[in-house]
Amino acid sequence: MSRYEVDGVDIQTLPKVSLHDHLDGGLRPQTILELGEEIGLELPADDAESLRAWFAAQSDSGSLPEYLKTFDLTTAVMQTEHGLRRVAKEFVLDLAEDGVVYGEIRWAPEQHLQRGLTLDQAVEAVQAGIEEAIGLVASHGGRIRVGQLVSAMRHLDRADEIAQLALRHRHAGAVGFDIAGPEDGFPASRLQSAFDTLAKAHFPATVHAGEGAGIDSIADALFSGRALRLGHGTRIAEDIVVEEETDDAIVVRLGEIAEWVKDRQIALEVSPSSNLQTGTIAQWGSALTDHPIDLLHQLGFCVTVNPDNRLQSGTTLTRELGLLVDAFDWSLDDLEQVTQNAAASAFCSFEDYEQLADEIADGYDAAR
């Protein structure tokens, strides 16, 4: 039993949907040690708990660029078919253990070619690990569905190639496209031709925006990237003015971008702990209670809750939901709403969505 509860229910037992979860941010420390030894990688610790602590300390920087430096270590052990397959397999098994019934794994294949893999071989290795894990979960009476979000690094120059890669694998595990990496100074418009290619092929995209940069970045993600979801999207709150607040009500005025995102129900892939670590919410405060996620949720935005990088943040989706229960007194109904938001925003078929929505509703009804 986890230590996170809502209305007397163990949150770990509830069905969950994880939309924003980085493959190179979800490694087990012991796996890093073992894969690192195989390739002679120098590590900052020689046991799993010490390595876990090192990642937590390095990640709590208040800066997105500094936070991103920890990935140099994780990607180093993900440069072979064996390494990628093992990491993907364990990633999915850990999701299932946490109660996730649908997950999308985002990662950038272009970062995993240092030991001779091609882009296609890298994607195939990850898919093999995913499928192996799905089979293991099923053999123990469980069920999980998982897709790949193929990401391009926004500050590099391979987006057109990565878009074509995603399209080649759209019927073999790839469910969507993303751009990742340093957001500020690298807008989605820089990769316009890749997004044009994807739009013409009717392939969905989510775009990191509203994390390391503000409203202009979000607007560009929506226009240039045709984003169906916003990776984090937290700084959409910059486009909301609170005009009056009492114990019983809050009166706000939405700017044009915030209004568009709310009215179109464009999903916000919010990652609370990560947002604290990277300074995303610095303008509102430094504690979880300062995070605008509760305001966005109460206003009816399509808020989803995600772990982002489970290793760097020392977290799980269960923990993220539990933290919100503690910080904002969210109820079982609140958790079900954000979970159904995630299901409705998943890059899957409508038929799969209907099954997923029913599975979530059944799980919550049973918990009640």
Rank of each mutant, 00 (worst) to 15 (best):
residue 2 S to M: 06
residue 12 Q to C: 08
residue 19 L to S: 03
residue 20 H to K: 06
residue 20 H to E: 01
residue 25 G to S: 05
residue 32 I to W: 06
residue 33 L to P: 09
residue 33 L to D: 10
residue 42 E to Q: 14
residue 43 L to H: 03
residue 45 A to Q: 10
residue 46 D to Y: 12
residue 49 E to G: 09
residue 50 S to H: 13
residue 55 F to L: 10
residue 56 A to V: 13
residue 57 A to D: 15
residue 59 S to F: 08
residue 60 D to M: 11
residue 60 D to Y: 12
residue 68 L to P: 04
residue 69 K to M: 15
residue 73 L to P: 02
residue 78 M to K: 02
residue 78 M to P: 04
residue 80 T to P: 07
residue 88 A to M: 05
residue 89 K to I: 00
residue 90 E to K: 01
residue 91 F to S: 01
residue 92 V to C: 09
residue 98 D to F: 04
residue 101 V to S: 00
residue 101 V to H: 01
residue 106 R to V: 02
residue 113 L to R: 05
residue 119 L to R: 03
residue 119 L to I: 11
residue 120 D to A: 09
residue 124 E to C: 03
residue 134 I to F: 00
residue 134 I to P: 00
residue 136 L to D: 14
residue 136 L to Q: 14
residue 137 V to Q: 01
residue 139 S to L: 07
residue 141 G to C: 02
residue 147 G to H: 07
residue 150 V to G: 01
residue 151 S to V: 09
residue 152 A to Q: 09
residue 155 H to T: 12
residue 168 R to A: 07
residue 168 R to C: 09
residue 174 A to T: 10
residue 175 V to G: 01
residue 176 G to L: 05
residue 180 A to L: 06
residue 182 P to G: 02
residue 184 D to G: 04
residue 184 D to R: 15
residue 187 P to C: 09
residue 188 A to D: 10
residue 189 S to H: 11
residue 195 F to Y: 15
residue 197 T to K: 11
residue 200 K to V: 12
residue 205 A to R: 14
residue 210 G to F: 12
residue 218 I to P: 06
residue 224 S to W: 09
residue 226 R to Y: 14
residue 227 A to R: 02
residue 228 L to V: 06
residue 233 G to F: 08
residue 237 A to N: 08
residue 246 T to F: 08
residue 249 A to T: 14
residue 253 R to H: 13
residue 253 R to P: 00
residue 254 L to T: 04
residue 256 E to V: 10
residue 256 E to A: 14
residue 258 A to F: 11
residue 259 E to M: 05
residue 264 R to P: 00
residue 264 R to Y: 07
residue 271 S to W: 01
residue 273 S to N: 04
residue 276 L to N: 02
residue 289 T to A: 15
residue 298 Q to K: 15
residue 309 N to W: 02
residue 323 L to T: 02
residue 325 V to L: 04
residue 332 L to V: 11
residue 333 D to Q: 13
residue 335 L to I: 11
residue 337 Q to S: 14
residue 338 V to Y: 05
residue 348 C to P: 00
residue 349 S to F: 09
residue 356 L to M: 13
residue 359 E to H: 13
residue 363 G to F: 05
residue 368 R to Q: 13
residue 368 R to C: 09
residue 368 R to L: 13
